[in-house]
């Protein structure tokens, strides 16, 4: 069983290494991820929000819905832990 798992892992890894050929090179300034929407964020963030930290601006302002529901997920996880572990306690 463990041998089978090892074989499956190695085969999946080999397949992924073969597929990694198509990824952009490390540190390439012209990779697709840094061409599509990020120049807009970098050039316009300070002008539009006066926040020097672009990460905060994108997190809280441009992608506010994303962060709102991430916060809701954290809240739901905490409440789930409370309910699961408090449910059948004897004190």
């Amino acid at each position: 069983m463990k041998i089978l798992a090892l074989i499956v892992s190695i085969m999946t890894g080999a397949l992924l290494i073969y597929a990694a050929e198509d990824f952009p090179s490390w540190g390439d300034p012209n990779s697709p991820t840094s061409l599509h929407v990020s120049p807009r964020y970098i050039t316009k963030t300070y002008e539009e929000t006066k926040i020097p930290n672009m990460v905060t601006a994108v997190l809280a302002d441009y992608r506010g819905y994303d962060t709102l529901f991430e916060t809701t997920v954290i809240f739901a996880a905490g409440i789930t832990v409370l309910f699961l572990l408090r449910g059948n306690r004897d004190d």
């Binding site: 929000t49 006066k50 302002d61 506010g64 962060t67 916060t71 954290i74």
Partner: peptide, 23 residues
């Protein structure tokens, strides 16, 4: 927009602190 971002950062901070501690 600067002020609004600060207010919601405070909200996120309170949630993260409290939930980490609860877990």
């Amino acid at each position: 927009r600067y002020i609004g971002t600060f207010v919601i950062e405070v909200g996120v901070g309170i949630t993260v602190m409290s939930i980490m501690l609860t877990i």
